[in-house]
């Protein structure tokens, strides 16, 4: 290893995390390289060991993106010529972007993000700090309870919400009927409700695992700093606000960006809520749903591919910021 063995990304220690967990540990001296033959064997061995992964990366990552890119530049079929093929330039992109649902679907997502993301980040940070301020069994139990809904996963979580939002048997039916709702269709399809419902669903589902993650970041803060602050007379509030919060800034940024990327690809929730509301929601609420529509209803693969390429580019941009700017990952050669 020629460069310092950065252990920044390993913010994992369950036990009292020593300061070294976040600080770079200098490796021992530069190791002397053996003969070229040894080096060659190492390179060959490395690539051999990576073959299964690289095959899967190609098959399930790179080839589909390249193929979608290629298809997105093909001509779209029309009613008169359903089998029309050939190079179509930016035709599919123009068609997608000028579709009346395109801008609206991004607007819908922004509405959800606007309601959800600030609450989500506040809740993640607040609960993570509270869990971190609760040593021992109580904190662990709370952290576990917050985690359960996320562990249930997609469709199970949706069913939980169907149960919650159906006034006929909901445990909050008093609240729902107080709002004037008699059927689940009314609850979901009333204008303006959907962003709030989606925000609540995403919050309940995602909060727990992010509390655990950010709590992990808190656990890796050097003990001596926290101890010094409390010896200086900082109370729990000051400790959280002045010391811990600034130190987990990069974790908060990481959570915000990944949740932003997650919001852009929203599919399952609006798709299934539409079924529950017997089709009274737009079937192309989110951009991913619109891409799905192009592929499965419109049978317009170039447009579906173009839509996917657009969503991939957006999430890729967010991903690049996370990887290179969040400071959580070290991608330097080591």
């Amino acid at each position: 290893m020629n460069s310092p063995d950065t252990r920044k990304s390993d913010m994992t220690s369950e036990t009292a995390a020593p300061a070294t967990a976040v600080r770079a540990v200098p490796a021992t001296a530069v190791r002397r390289r053996g003969r070229n033959a040894v080096r060659g064997k190492e390179v060959l061995g490395a690539w051999t060991l990576m073959v299964p992964y690289l095959v899967l990366l190609l098959v399930a990552g790179i080839v589909p993106i390249a193929y979608a890119l290629w298809i997105s530049f093909q001509q779209s079929p029309t009613l008169l010529e359903p089998n029309k093929t050939g190079f179509g330039g930016l035709q599919a992109y123009v068609q997608v972007v000028s579709d009346f649902r395109f801008a609206r679907s991004f607007g819908d997502i922004f509405a959800v993000l606007l309601v959800w993301l600030p609450i989500m980040i506040l809740a993640i940070v607040g609960l993570a700090l509270l869990v971190h301020a609760s040593p021992g069994r109580f904190g662990r139990i709370m952290r576990f309870i917050y985690y359960i809904p996320g562990a249930l996963g997609g469709v199970a979580n949706l069913m939980l919400w169907v149960y919650l939002l159906n006034p006929s048997q909901s445990p909050i039916s008093g609240f729902l009927s107080g709002m004037g709702f008699d059927t689940i269709k009314q609850v979901i399809a009333t204008r303006g409700d959907l962003p709030v419902i989606l925000a609540a669903m995403l919050l309940l589902q995602g909060l727990g695992q992010w509390v655990v993650t950010v709590n992990g970041g808190l656990n890796s803060l050097p003990d001596d700093v926290l101890e010094a602050a409390s010896l200086d007379g900082a109370n729990a509030w000051q400790l959280a606000w002045r010391i811990k919060l600034p130190m987990i800034r990069q974790w908060i940024g990481y959570a915000a960006l990944l949740n932003l990327a997650y919001g852009f690809q929203l599919f399952l929730e609006p798709y299934l809520l539409n079924q529950v509301a017997s089709g009274s929601l737009p079937a192309e609420y989110s951009p991913t749903q619109l891409g799905y529509w192009f592929a499965f209803v419109g049978n317009n693969f170039p447009a579906a591919a173009a839509m996917s390429v657009i969503i991939v580019i957006i999430t890729l941009a967010i991903g690049l910021v996370v990887v290179f700017r969040s400071g959580l990952f070290s991608v330097e050669e080591n």
Binding site: L57, A68, I71, Y262, Q265, A305, S308, G319, V323
Partner: peptide, 19 residues
């Protein structure tokens, strides 16, 4: 690997379907 990890896996579903 990191990029593929932080990108939501659903963004690839339509391309995977086409493949």
């Amino acid at each position: 690997t990191l990029l593929a990890m932080v990108m939501p896996n659903t963004v690839l579903v339509i391309p995977l379907f086409l493949e």
